[in-house]
Amino acid sequence: MANPVFLNLVLLEGEPLTLLHAAKQAGFDEVEIWQENVQAAEGGAKAIRAQAQRLNLGFTNCQVLRDFAGAPLALREEKRQQAQQFFQLAQAIGCRTVQAPACTREDCQAELIDEDLCWLSAGAARHDLRIMYEPMAWSTVDNRLGMAWQRLKRLDLPNVGLVVDLFHIAARGDDASVLEDIPPQRIYEVQLCDMAEAVTPDDMLQLVDSARHHRLLPGDGILPVADFVAALQRKGYRGPVGIEVFNNRLKQQPPQVTAAQAFAALRRCWP
Score class of each variant (00 low, 15 high):
6 F>R: 02
159 N>C: 12
14 G>I: 06
28 F>H: 02
44 G>F: 01
6 F>Q: 02
219 G>V: 11
262 A>P: 03
167 F>L: 09
157 L>C: 05
12 L>C: 12
100 A>Y: 00
74 A>G: 06
123 G>N: 14
249 R>T: 15
251 K>T: 11
31 V>N: 04
118 C>V: 10
248 N>E: 15
74 A>S: 13
217 L>E: 05
60 T>V: 11
193 C>S: 14
79 K>Q: 03
9 L>I: 02
70 G>P: 04
158 P>M: 07
68 F>V: 06
131 I>Y: 04
3 N>L: 04
56 N>M: 08
132 M>E: 05
267 R>E: 15
72 P>L: 12
171 A>I: 05
238 R>T: 15
230 A>Q: 14
103 C>E: 08
214 H>V: 12
112 L>Q: 10
127 H>M: 12
256 Q>H: 12
148 A>V: 02
114 D>H: 10
16 P>S: 10
136 M>S: 01
129 L>G: 05
165 D>I: 01
12 L>S: 10
51 Q>S: 06
176 A>V: 08
83 A>Q: 02
98 V>T: 05
40 A>Y: 14
150 Q>V: 13
9 L>M: 03
127 H>T: 09
166 L>P: 00
147 M>S: 14
170 A>T: 13
212 R>E: 13
155 L>S: 09
230 A>T: 13
95 C>P: 01
4 P>K: 07
53 Q>T: 04
200 T>M: 07
94 G>A: 06
41 A>G: 08
249 R>H: 15
178 V>M: 07
163 V>I: 15
234 R>W: 14
165 D>W: 01
58 G>D: 07
74 A>Q: 09
46 K>P: 02
178 V>S: 11
188 Y>D: 03
99 Q>S: 05
22 A>Y: 00
189 E>Y: 03
145 L>D: 00
123 G>Y: 13
1 M>L: 04
156 D>N: 15
38 V>A: 11
201 P>Q: 07
173 G>T: 11
262 A>M: 07
71 A>C: 13
157 L>G: 03
119 W>I: 11
157 L>Y: 04
125 A>C: 13
251 K>D: 12
87 F>H: 08
46 K>L: 10
121 S>T: 13
222 I>T: 08
94 G>C: 04
60 T>R: 04
